[in-house]
Design a protein around this nucleic acid. Sequence first.
DNA 1: CTTCCAGGCTAATACAATTAGGCAAATCGT
DNA 2: ACGATTTGCCTAATTGTATTAGCCTGGAAG
Lengths: 189, 189
Amino acid sequence: MARAIITAERLALAAAEVADEIGFEHVTGSAVARRLGVKEPSLYAHIANARELKVRVALLALEELAARAAGALAGRAGRDALVAFADAYRRYAREHPGRYAAARFELDPETAARSAGPRHSEMIRALLRGYDLPEPDQTDAVRFLGGAIHGYVSLELAGGFQHTPRDADASWAWALDTLDLALRCRSTG
Amino acid sequence: MARAIITAERLALAAAEVADEIGFEHVTGSAVARRLGVKEPSLYAHIANARELKVRVALLALEELAARAAGALAGRAGRDALVAFADAYRRYAREHPGRYAAARFELDPETAARSAGPRHSEMIRALLRGYDLPEPDQTDAVRFLGGAIHGYVSLELAGGFQHTPRDADASWAWALDTLDLALRCRSTG
DNA sequence: CTTCCAGGCTAATACAATTAGGCAAATCGT
DNA sequence: ACGATTTGCCTAATTGTATTAGCCTGGAAG
């Protein structure tokens, strides 16, 4: 090995930082190269194309987010687990908007399968065990909850709520209450 | 006037078609120019820059979506209204994935204010009148419902549900039932 | 009929993406 | 220690998108 300046990890991290600063859609080879202190063509020894830059960020984000969500879930159940889990998403999205956007980047099926993506669904499924839903509803509830959390967070992140004065945290608490309520209504057949 | 080949409307429509075909993020000046049968620089007589191409698609999509949602809402109330409204979103997203993605494009505040965007919130607010929620919850519910619908639709559109065999329409019906249930639980104080 | 102008065209520049081939430093076998 | 090899970034060159500047033409107006 010669002097290792660029590694896959450094590259992904640099790209993630760029994403958080200027937005995921503006992650560009030159911006990442500049941040790493190398020339743009040097990147192509480590990635196949510009798309892979974004894929790396997506994988990093899914991983980080899964780790946070898992931490939030640890030792909690029922409503507590739901709130902690959803809060982990929301906090991550606020701290790392570019990475959060990256987590929704469309990966090809094999890559997606190897990513931390499926772990997210598994965690939601685990979370839902606290609500013992009838068997056939499990999958529906995973989709519903995943959609609801992501939808709320992404709308809030996009600034869609700024035109009404209502406090953001209060609305969020209301949404979580409502989700909890809905799931409890659904439970026990 | 000389032969009017490009108009603002044609341009937006062409860009929207490109978006639906190859994805909103790949809407490019040359693709739109090709479709219109003109050379790329000719576009700049009608738009300021490439970003405006996307803005036009976003505005078109918000408008179309608002129209469909309004039609869905007409003459309905309560659960019926909720289902029709949400279905309108989901159907639009399936028929026009590129435009649906465009509807989430971040507009500058003034443009957003003049767009059909605010009408969407108003419609949700109107829809919620069928659930008479206590006053202070109104805004929270708008955010919650908007987020839930958008989140579910965008996750489904991204193919996030394909790894489980469960029927998509059944899951969707479950989600709508659950939303209705949650809102009814919240109603009347 | 001639003048003007809307509306698209060609030419030219800048930046992002990508490929090809070079050069130096670190490594390895002897 | 020493040359062969490999590793890892660099320069140069190509293509495509974004954008500006200035030209050219056909029809509207007088």
